[in-house]
Nucleic acid binder design. Structure first.
Lengths: 230, 230
DNA sequence: CCAAAAGTGTTTAAATTACACCCATGG
DNA sequence: CCATGGGTGTAATTTAAACACTTTTGG
C-alpha cells in the first residue's frame, strides 16, 4: 500500500535554538516566555516554524537576529527531533541549533511569539515544553565536545579578555577546574590569542593583561580542528 | 504579515542513510539505483520520505531493515539539510543518518524505490543526486570523529576478528597507518576486546588469534566516551 | 600597609613514538 | 624448506601533572 506523493507534504518543520552566553557568574541560556499557543505563558527555547520559502539555516539565524539584534551569530546545527506526537498541533519536526553569544552585545527584543526573554543560569533551567529539556541537555554535551575541538569559546567572551576570564569560561563550560599555570602554558602554546599590550584599569588589585583572539590562527583551527587536552 | 498556521504544514521530510561496510579491500558505502522519479536511474543514498504516522528514527531504521534484512543496525543521526530548492518536487527537508553494517550479514533486497543496491568503495563514489555527495562527505568526517570517541568500529567487523583485521578497519576509516606493536598495545590496554582462545584455520601462515569485543566494557565506553589517540 | 587577584618555572610521572626479529602454518 | 603473515619488548622522547611564592594595583 503506497501513499500518494501529496500525503507526504503535510509536515511542518521548526527550528529551536539553544543560545549560550557567559558572565562572571557562569554559563547562561536564553529562554523566551511564550506569548502564543501552544504552551503559552511558559519558558521555552526560542524557535519558530519555518516558512516554505526560507532556507533552514536562514530560518534559525533569523529567529536569533530578531531576538538579539545581533547580525553575525556563531551557530551550529545539533540534532533533529521527530517523534510523531511531539507537537500538539500536528506533525512538527524540529531542527535544533546552538548559538554562542556575547551577552553584553545582545539587546533583547522579544518579538511577536515571545512576551519576554531572559538569561537563565545553566543550572536553574525550569521545565520546558515540547522536548526542549532534552534538546538542552544534548546541546550542553555537544558544547563540551565542540569547545575542545575548535576555538569557539571566544564567541562567548568580549573582544578583549583576561586569561582569568578565558579560564573561567572554559571551566564553566567543561564543568571542571584547571591549574592556573598549566592552563596558561597550554593556551599560550596553542597560539590562540595575542597580548594587546593593554591592561585592565580601575581594579583593586594588580591589573590583568588584555588579550584578543588571533584571527588567522582561529580560522585555521576552526577548519582543521584540534584536540584540546585540558 | 503573519502566515496562517496551515501554511506551515506543507513540507515533506525524508531520511537519507549513509551506510558503511568494511571488507579487506577497504571501506564501502551502500548505494541504491533509483527506480522512481526524481533522478530515476541514478545511484543515490538509500532514503525515503517519512509518513506522518512514523517516528523519525523508526523511519530511518525501516529503510535499512527493508534493504538489508538486518534487525539491529547501529545508526546515528548526522545533520538535516533544508535548502529551499534541494528537491524538485517541493519543499523536502532531509535528515541524514549514518549506519555501520557487517557486510557479510546483509542480504541486499532492493525494494520498490530501488532497482538495485550495491557496495561502492569509498573512493569510487559516482556523482549523486540531490545534495547526497555533500551528505556523504559529512558522514565520512563524522565517522572519523566518532570512531575515536566510541568503540563503534566493531559494528563493521564480524563477531570474531583478528587484531590485523581490527587494525585494517581503523586504518581504512581514519585513512592512516599505524605501527603494529603500538596499535596492539593501545587496544589491549583499553580492554575493548577479549581473546576467545580460538584461532584462524586453513591459512597459509601462522594462524591469528580470534578476538571478540568485550560487551560490558563496550557499553561503558559507549556511554562515557573516551579519546582514542591512535 | 593590607587585601585581592595576577603572574610565573621546575620537577616528576605518564604516555607516545620509534624500531627489528622470531614464530606457526600450509603447500 | 620456503613463503606468508602473526606475534612480541625496550629505550628515548614528548607531553601532562603537580605544586607555592612574588607582583601590582586601589583603598
Amino acid at each position: 500500500m503506497k501513499n500518494a506523493l501529496s500525503d507526504y507534504f503535510k509536515a511542518a518543520v521548526s527550528v529551536d535554538n539553544v543560545v549560550f552566553g557567559f558572565e562572571k557568574t557562569g554559563l547562561k541560556i536564553l529562554l523566551i516566555y511564550r506569548g502564543a499557543e501552544p504552551f503559552r505563558d511558559q519558558w521555552a527555547l526560542p524557535g519558530d516554524l519555518i516558512s516554505v520559502d526560507i532556507d533552514l539555516v536562514s530560518s534559525a539565524e533569523k529567529v536569533l537576529q530578531k531576538l538579539t539584534g545581533l547580525e553575525k551569530i556563531y551557530m551550529e546545527q545539533l540534532q533533529t527531533f521527530g517523534k510523531v506526537n511531539r507537537h500538539p498541533y500536528g506533525r512538527v519536526f524540529t531542527v535544533s541549533y546552538f548559538a554562542l553569544i556575547k551577552i553584553e552585545d545582545a539587546h533583547l527584543n522579544p518579538s511577536s511569539w515571545a512576551e519576554e526573554a531572559a538569561w537563565f543560569p545553566i543550572n536553574e533551567i525550569p521545565n520546558l515544553p515540547f522536548d526542549h529539556n532534552e534538546i538542552l541537555e544534548f546541546a550542553k554535551s555537544q558544547l563540551k565536545l565542540r569547545i575542545r575541538r575548535q576555538p569557539i569559546g571566544f564567541e562567548l567572551l568580549p573582544k578583549l579578555f583576561t586569561l582569568t576570564e578565558l579560564q573561567n569560561m572554559y571551566e564553566s563550560v567543561l564543568e571542571t577546574q584547571f591549574d592556573v599555570r598549566n592552563f596558561r602554558k597550554k593556551i599560550l602554546f596553542l597560539d590562540f590569542i595575542t597580548d594587546t599590550g593593554k591592561k585592565e584599569n580601575c581594579v583593586a588589585h594588580r591589573p590583568a593583561k588584555l588579550f584578543k583572539y588571533n584571527a588567522k590562527r582561529y580560522q585555521k583551527l576552526i577548519e582543521n580542528g584540534y584536540e584540546l587536552a585540558l
